[in-house]
């Protein structure tokens, strides 16, 4: 077929497809969709012919531009057509399924975190002077006088400001742990080890000054869940790192894309809890008038609520995700 005949015969199809694309802002009927899909296929085939036989011509350029636009409009991202999960579905189905999927990595992250805590504890037990370097001289001076540095959370700044600062800081730490997964998993490892070391050192130092009970009282309301969330966020980052380092029998780009999407959903499922915990950390944890038992019950309840949400509906969620 010569060029002029090709253009004459096929141009009505291209123009009809172009009109359909221009009108695709409206909700299309089933028949419209079928027609658009058919024309898209015709345009693709015409594009292949024009690119091979008439490269560089106006028809070839128009067809390429139409094919690119059509592909953009008709091919949607997202597996199983569930890209736009609602919030309820996300927290009751998607998040639990991904939590379960990441359980081995969560286990690895938790083990690393615990090891780092013991490491920090051991270091401070043998060298208490290291605690000054970690906490700073002012905090250590306070400990010598029998005061925890956490009192400043409500004495030097308004609780609302402390709360939002803590929330944004914790969310930033979680995001950093996930983002760092792209450095072959080194980011979440760093977050786990440094936070574990810090916590262990702080515990060791407060025990050295016989203030361990006060510290445990302070963290009893928010600490369990906060540490769990840091471990889960780091496990999400480790998931990304694993896809980068060991993609298995799949193309690395595909493994990375799936790991990125799944781990991001896992991470985002944790973020609202960070905001809630920041409020607890400022409005409940530093209050000496509240009994320890109440703080402990609150802390354990929050932890149980999170784990119940993450683990309870897993059977149905797993079936959905398949």
């Amino acid at each position: 077929m010569d060029y002029a005949r090709f253009v004459r015969l096929r141009r009505p199809v291209w123009e009809a497809f172009e009109r359909q694309l221009a009108a695709s802002g409206r909700r299309p009927s089933h028949a419209d969709l079928e027609e658009t899909a058919l024309r898209y296929r015709q345009v693709l085939h015409d594009h292949a012919l024009a690119a091979a036989r008439y490269p560089g011509t106006a028809a070839a350029q128009r067809l390429r531009s139409l094919a690119v636009e059509g592909t953009h409009r008709l091919i949607r991202d997202g597996r199983n057509g569930r890209e736009d999960d609602g919030l309820v579905r996300f927290f009751t189905r998607t998040f639990p399924a991904l939590f379960r999927l990441h359980l081995p990595l969560i286990g690895v992250a938790a083990a690393l975190f615990l090891l780092s805590i013991f490491w920090g504890l051991a270091i401070t037990a043998f060298r208490p002077s290291l605690g000054t370097a970690i906490l700073g001289p002012a905090a250590v001076a306070g400990l010598e006088e029998g005061r925890l540095w956490t009192e400043s959370l409500v004495t030097t700044t308004p609780p609302s400001v402390s709360s939002s600062s803590i929330a944004t800081n914790n969310v930033s730490v979680a995001l950093t742990a996930w983002i760092g997964g792209l450095l072959a998993g080194l980011g979440p490892l760093y977050v786990l080890v440094t936070n574990g070391l810090l916590l262990g050192s702080v515990l060791g130092l407060t025990l050295h000054y016989s203030m361990g009970g006060e510290l445990l009282e302070f963290i009893s309301a928010h600490g369990f869940l906060e540490l769990t969330l840091i471990v889960v966020a780091s496990a999400a980052g480790l998931g990304v790192g694993r896809a980068m380092v060991a993609a298995g029998d799949r193309p690395r780009s595909l493994a990375l894309r799936d790991a990125g999407r799944d781990s991001l959903k896992l991470l985002l499922g944790c973020l609202p809890w960070f905001v809630l915990l920041a409020a607890v950390e400022v409005f409940v944890s530093p209050r000496p008038e509240l009994p320890v038992s109440l703080k402990l019950v609150l802390g354990l309840s929050l932890e149980t609520a999170f784990l119940a949400l993450a683990l309870y509906p897993h059977r149905q969620a797993t079936r959905d995700s398949q």
């Binding site: 690119v68 592909t71 953009h72 409009r73 008709l74 091919i75 949607r76 991202d77 997202g78 890209e83 736009d84 894309r257 999407r261 991001l264 959903k265």
Partner: peptide, 8 residues
């Protein structure tokens, strides 16, 4: 060549 979803 398709439209990316919100997660991506």
């Amino acid at each position: 060549g398709g439209a990316p979803g919100a997660w991506a």
